[in-house]
Amino acid sequence: MKRWAPAGLLALLLALLACALGPAGHRWIEATSLLVDVWSVGQERAAAPSTWIIYPGPGGESRRADVYCDPGAPPGARLLLAHGLVEAGKDDARLHALGRALARHRFLVVIPDFPGMRSLRVGRGDIDELDAAIRASQAVSACGAPDGLPLGAVGFSYSSGPVLLALDRPGVARPDDFAVLFGGYDDLVDVVRFLTTGRHRDLGIDYGGEALPEGRWMVLQANAGTLADPADREALATIGRMKRSDPGADVSALAATLGPAGRALLEALTNTDPDRFDALMRRVDPAVRGTLDALSPSRSLDRPLGIDLYLLHGRSDAIVPWSESLKLARSVRTTGRVRLALLGGFRHARPQGDGGDAGWVTALRYPADSASILDILAEILGRRRESA
């Protein structure tokens, strides 16, 4: 006799319930199915996209985005998934697993590639990249998607800032659009503070935390290109790559070649003393500090956003501390609603120990997290428009 796996029995039960319930109940059933997909995101293999698009980047360059949708179920909303500082870029298997899962629930999912972020560089141009990608996503018509569908821009970690700042520009966001930020931030300088000293602050309270050891070198590599001296840029980027690959690497010879601006940035990012952080950051080249400020929502949002925001953050995040989403929830100006969920079962924009247990097992292990995510997923599913 065939034995049913727990996941199969759960799927059958959900299907029976969906038939018995009305639209609201059906949405909660869908949300439960999608919740298991979220908890399973690190375990799924990449799936080939439904199609892809080429669109003009900020300077007219060609940009490519993969698209997921279900031809048998016309989309009720569009989602843009923006990768962060990751060398895989749009080809990150986790993004594609999430795209495939969301497409099963009548979302048209667009996953663009951002060359700067894929190269582990940050800059003001990232906001322009998101601007172009959002506008292109609004026009994708694959799988019969009609014009004017709501669009949700989803940012992970670093990309959360450019997502918000692009939506802040005139003509980008529309009244029914929304943003979902996972592991986002309010102020990049405070993210650097955490990655170098292990300290973060909120409402005057100082917190400790376990920062990713290679985080300081990621920041160095990402910001090296902002300096004016080409020799400093190359040396600092090389130091960052070497230290990320081998924390014990001897970089003294490269450090000795640095000019004043390069030395100031390296000293600020190798510092571990919280009491010295502010003074060292004041010595950093104004171009670097200006870039950090320009990419920080707390310093650069020009006007109230007219959209709803969903902020989710793992309490064990070792790159962007959870206090950043708390601060963002308070500081962001929006005429829409702000939903915030701090998740004990997540680290940096992914579940704890992803790749192990089945999604439904992990969902049951963290019931409080699952309840918070389920509520937000049900609300996002409710933003879809019904097909004609």
Rank of each mutant, 00 (worst) to 15 (best):
H96Q: 15
A5W: 08
F182M: 11
D285F: 10
E61M: 07
V288F: 10
L342Q: 06
A222D: 06
V38N: 06
S62N: 11
G144N: 12
R385N: 07
L12K: 07
D369V: 06
I134A: 13
P351M: 10
L108N: 05
D317P: 00
A349Y: 03
F156P: 00
F346N: 03
Y158K: 01
H26G: 15
L79P: 00
P304V: 04
G171F: 07
D177Q: 07
R263W: 08
P274L: 13
H313A: 07
L328A: 11
D113F: 04
L266W: 04
L374D: 01
G116Q: 13
P367Q: 12
F107Y: 15
S141N: 12
G240T: 11
D273W: 06
L265I: 12
I29W: 02
D128F: 11
Y366I: 05
Q352L: 15
W28Y: 14
V163C: 08
D91T: 05
D232S: 13
R216Q: 06
D190S: 14
G89D: 09
F194I: 09
P56V: 14
L151N: 01
Q221C: 00
H313F: 09
H348M: 08
R199P: 00
L292F: 09
R299S: 12
L309R: 02
H105S: 08
A253I: 14
A279I: 03
P150A: 13
G198M: 11
S316E: 11
A231Y: 05
F107K: 03
R199D: 03
R383C: 04
L374V: 06
L227F: 15
D308V: 05
A329W: 01
R118W: 09
V288T: 08
A46S: 15
V320G: 01
S40W: 10
A93M: 07
A101P: 02
L120T: 04
V284L: 08
S316R: 14
V122W: 10
P56G: 11
I319Q: 05
P56I: 14
L212H: 09
L381C: 06
A88F: 05
W39A: 07
I373E: 05
A341R: 09
A173H: 01
L340Q: 06
A73V: 06
L312E: 01
A145W: 03
R315T: 03
G183E: 01
A93G: 03
D308P: 01
P351D: 09
R365A: 14
H96C: 05
D275M: 09
G8Q: 15
A264V: 06
R299T: 10
A103H: 03
L16F: 10
G25L: 12
G155Q: 01
P162F: 12
W28N: 08
E379T: 14
G22Y: 13
Y158N: 00
L85M: 10
R106D: 04
A237R: 13
A101W: 04
V36M: 13
P297R: 00
D285T: 07
A368Y: 06
A371K: 08
G344C: 03
D357H: 07
G171W: 05
G99C: 14
L17D: 03
L301T: 08
R121F: 10
V192T: 06
G382D: 08
F182R: 00
V192S: 07
L312N: 00
